[in-house]
Amino acid sequence: MIDLFADAFASQITQRALLGGLLAATITALIGTWVVVRGLAFFGDAMAHGVLPGIALAVIWGFDLTLGAMASAVVMVLGINVVHRTTRVSDDTAIGLLFVGMLALGVVLISREVTFAGDLTAFLFGDVLGVRTTELWIGVGALAVTVVGMVVGHRSFLALAVNRDKAEVLGLRPDIAHVAMLLLLALSVVSTFRVVGTLLVFGLMVAPPATAVLVVRRMPVAMLVAVGFGWSSVVFGLTLSYHASTAASATVAGFAVAQFFVVLTVVEMRDLLQRKRLTAAV
C-alpha cells in the first residue's frame, strides 16, 4: 500500500500536482461548506462556468488568465445582484440566465480565436499534472485570504445562514455578508480552475462539504472535516489516476463524489439499525 503512494508521487510533476490539489481542496472545502449549508450549489456551479469569458479574453488579448477569470467572476456576482434588486426575477432565474449567457459567450470567443477543442478542454477540465509554481503561490495567497475571510465573517455568515431577518436585527449586515461570501466563492473558483478546471472545481466545492455535513453539524468542525475529505479525494484520486492511467483532474473529482455516496450509504445503514433497535426496545 505504501509503495502505491510512493510510486505515484515519486516525480516532481506529481508532487506539484499533489500540493496544488491539496491547496485547491482546502480553499474549496472552506467556502464550499457555506455553499452547501446555504443552498448555493447552483450559484457555485454557475460561477465555475461563468469565468470562461474572462479566460477567453485573457487568451485573446494576452494577459494573465487569473485576472481574466476574476474579472468575469466579479461580473457574475454584480450581475446577479443587479437583476435581483431591479427586477422581480428570482435569484435562481437570474443565476440561470447569467450562467448560460456567460458560458455561451466564453465558448463563442474561444471557438473563434483559439484552437477550440484543445484549449476549451483544458479550461473546462484542467490539468492538475501541469501545475506550475505560479499557480501554487496563487493558491497560497487565495487560501490566506479565504481563512481570514472565514474567521472575520464567521458570525455574520452563521447568522445569515440561520435567519436573514435576525442577522439584520443583530446589526450583522446580511447584504454585505452575502456579497462577501459570493466574492470568496468567486476567489475559490478563480484560484483553483487552473488546477482542476472550471467544471471539475465544482465537484471539490460541493462533494467534500456535503460529505462532511452528513457526519457533523457544527460549522467549524464541518469545515475541517470537509478539508479532510477533500484531501483524501486528492491523494487517492491522484494515486488511482497514476496507476490506472486515467485523467487526473476528473479522477479526483469523481473520487470526491463517490466518497459522498459511500458515506451516505454508511450513515443511512447506521440510522436504519438504530431505528430497528429502538423499535425492538419499545
Rank of each mutant, 00 (worst) to 15 (best):
A281H: 10
D3Y: 14
I60W: 04
H154V: 12
V215E: 05
L40N: 04
V225S: 00
A25Q: 02
H178S: 13
A244Y: 13
T121S: 13
S90Q: 10
L4Q: 15
I60L: 15
G139L: 08
P220E: 08
V216E: 00
F42H: 06
V131W: 03
P208D: 07
V51K: 01
A167F: 07
H178T: 08
D119P: 07
R194C: 05
D92H: 15
L52S: 02
L172T: 07
L22W: 04
R88T: 14
L103Q: 13
A244E: 06
A48P: 02
V196T: 04
I95M: 10
V267E: 10
L57Y: 01
W137E: 10
E135V: 15
V201G: 02
D165K: 13
H49C: 03
F157Q: 02
V151D: 12
R164W: 09
L264E: 08
G21K: 00
V37P: 03
M223F: 01
A58N: 08
D271P: 04
Q15T: 13
T87R: 12
G21N: 04
V252N: 01
T28D: 04
L18R: 01
L183C: 05
F202K: 03
A29T: 00
P209G: 05
L238N: 01
T87S: 13
G228M: 02
Q15W: 13
F236N: 03
F43V: 14
L124K: 08
R16E: 07
Q274L: 14
P208C: 08
T146I: 09
H243I: 10
G96A: 14
L23Q: 06
V225Q: 00
M205V: 14
I31E: 02
F9M: 12
T192M: 04
H49K: 06
V147E: 11
R38V: 05
H154N: 14
K166M: 13
G21W: 01
M47P: 03
F202E: 05
M205W: 06
P209M: 03
P174F: 05
A250N: 09
I176V: 15
L187G: 00
L264P: 05
M181G: 07
P220N: 08
E268L: 15
G96W: 05
L98V: 12
W34C: 01
I80C: 08
V151Q: 11
I95Q: 04
T26F: 03
E168Q: 13
V74Q: 09
E168D: 11
I27W: 00
G62Q: 10
V114G: 05
V189M: 11
L65M: 15
R217A: 07
T265P: 09
R275V: 08
D271S: 13
L224Q: 00
W34F: 12
G228Q: 01
M70F: 15
A142H: 06
R155L: 10
A212Q: 04
F99I: 12
S11V: 10
G106E: 08
R270H: 15
Q259V: 05
A207I: 06
A46R: 01
R173F: 08
A281M: 11
V201M: 09
S72E: 07
L97F: 15
V100S: 12
V114A: 12
A29D: 00
A41W: 06
L78A: 13
A48C: 10
S233P: 04
E168S: 07
L105V: 14
V225P: 00
V227I: 14
L124N: 05
V169A: 11
E135K: 07
P174V: 01
D119E: 14
A256L: 04
R275L: 10
V252W: 01
R275F: 11
F5A: 09
